[in-house]
Simulated scan of single mutants.
Amino acid sequence: MTEVKPDKAASFVGHVLSRCQDDKGFAARLRRADNPATEYQSWDVLASFGIALEYDHPRLAYQAVAASIARAKVTANGSLMLGRAIAACYEDGNNSDQAKARLRRLLACDDVAELCRILRGQLSLIDSKAGQALDYQRLLKQLLAFHFDAQRVRAQWAQEFYGKADDKPDSEDEA
């Protein structure tokens, strides 16, 4: 029998979740990972996963997710998708003008650096208001894919935001 290995995003998220529970110093370093002045404190973790530190695209995506996990103090990967999470922060859900403005700001991002900068505040809002944990594995895959296929990722977020309540993806390759 062949054993299915988890993908890199799943391994990374699992590792960060596990280590943040056991090591408060580790969690503190990761909370500073999405700040350009202190991001180097997370580079040992990224390098151990084979992430190329010299390139913004993968580094910033991994740092944004790691920092969000460390700040949220979650114990497991959630199931809430980003678009649905933005809507969940407001009483009116996806009918809220503020929620729509936040989604539009994400959809207007042109590159991963801008996206991760804008996402930082949105992830903090989601952590404080949404009431459930994000699907960090899916988010990381989307951030990594944004560099190559931004339009598809934007469409996924819009679908999650405006879509019906059923959050089950039609296929595994959506992320």
Results as ranks from 00 to 15, higher is better:
T2Y: 03
V4F: 13
K5R: 04
P6K: 05
K8T: 14
A9E: 12
V13N: 07
G14T: 07
V16N: 08
R19N: 02
C20T: 15
C20V: 05
C20A: 06
D22A: 10
K24D: 05
G25W: 02
G25M: 07
F26G: 01
F26A: 01
A27I: 12
R29G: 04
L30H: 04
D34A: 15
A37D: 15
E39P: 03
S42E: 00
S42V: 06
W43C: 09
L46C: 10
A47E: 15
S48Y: 12
I51G: 03
I51K: 03
E54S: 11
D56E: 11
D56G: 01
H57A: 15
R59L: 06
R59F: 00
A61Q: 05
A61F: 10
Y62L: 07
V65M: 00
A67E: 05
A67M: 13
I69W: 03
I69V: 14
A70I: 10
A70M: 13
A76S: 15
S79Q: 05
L80A: 07
M81T: 08
L82G: 08
G83Q: 07
A85H: 11
A87V: 07
A88P: 08
A88L: 11
Y90H: 12
G93A: 13
G93E: 13
N95S: 15
Q98M: 07
Q98T: 12
K100R: 15
K100F: 01
A101S: 14
R102M: 10
L103A: 00
R104Y: 08
R105V: 06
R105S: 08
L107T: 04
C109M: 15
D110L: 07
V112F: 11
V112H: 04
R117N: 14
R117P: 04
G121P: 06
Q122F: 11
Q122A: 03
Q122H: 14
Q122T: 13
D127H: 09
D127A: 15
A130I: 09
G131S: 07
D135I: 02
D135G: 02
Q137L: 08
R138I: 02
R138S: 09
L139D: 07
L140T: 09
K141I: 02
F146Q: 02
H147N: 10
F148Y: 10
R152T: 10
V153H: 00
R154E: 02
A155Q: 11
A155L: 08
W157M: 14
A158Q: 10
F161M: 13
F161Q: 06
G163E: 03
K164H: 14
A165M: 09
D167G: 04
E172I: 09
